[in-house]
Design a protein around this nucleic acid. Structure first.
Lengths: 138, 138
DNA sequence: ACAATAGTCTATCAATACAGTAGACTTAAT
DNA sequence: ATTAAGTCTACTGTATTGATAGACTATTGT
């Protein structure tokens, strides 16, 4: 399961995708519309900014906005930025790989099964982008 | 990511699948072969027994064994038994569904995307069985 | 210059889940 | 009776999760 934090991040990104090209969006606006605790949201947006997916403007007329077009940011990338691995076990993770110290990848049945599962998941998440997170009433 | 507990459970089940039809297998045997802390493994196996996927025999010559053939137990089922939901968010979970209180499933972009992802994952995990967890050197 | 606006940084916190351990107890085979 | 093996109760430490408070900094408009 994705953590609350990751879910909030995806919701916020979806909202920013809907507002893409319309200037900065207030944290408080995102917080209200997406029902995300504002202080928690602040830290999430900051993290996404540091990950170079968002930028912000301070002061009046400020807020957050996407750096790139929503179509250019895949869900896989977004999830990895805040939520970590997509794979179900570390030894089949592409971006957060960790060697399994107690089993041999060449013969491990679990490894194989999880690898296939990861491929199926990734096939979806690398194709879908933030533009698909836009709610149909926004 | 699957918890350590779930990973251990899958490894143990894979081992029991390899030994299926050969009588009870000792906890200590599974623990040694699969490098799982024995006390932790005990609780996991007990849970799997209560979930009716394993049975056990006490005393000399005792141990754990699969109730059904490895081919009849899907990975989806095994993961759900000890690890909980397979879906990435509660509102698209089939077995652990929870209504999202702050969004409308009919219009939510995230809901749709996660639903598609879940379907892809499930398509694999409902087809694969414990027999595919058997290591190729067992 | 200065007030108002809005993001940033530091720090902390309670609750829960995770991973694991200890030891006494029960059941079955020889 | 003895030994082997699973079962049950009860902890424990650590990390992660989800969140909040408050001071600080940068920008804009008057």
């Amino acid at each position: 399961m994705l953590s609350k934090k990751t879910q909030y991040a995806l919701k916020a990104l979806g909202y920013l995708a809907a507002k893409y090209g319309q200037g900065p969006v207030l944290i408080s606006d995102i917080s209200k519309k997406k029902k995300i605790p504002i202080k928690f949201l602040e830290t999430i947006l900051l993290e996404l900014k540091q990950a170079q997916i968002l930028d912000s403007k301070k002061g009046k007329g400020g807020g957050y906005f996407l750096i790139q077009s929503p179509k250019q940011i895949t869900l896989a990338r977004a999830i990895r930025l805040v939520g970590g691995p997509i794979a179900m076990i570390p030894c089949v993770s592409l971006n957060f790989y960790e060697k399994c110290k107690d089993c041999d990848e060449a013969t491990c049945g679990l490894y194989k099964a999880m690898q296939i599962t990861r491929d199926a998941t990734l096939k979806i998440l690398e194709k879908k982008t933030l533009s698909e997170l836009i709610d149909r009433d926004e």
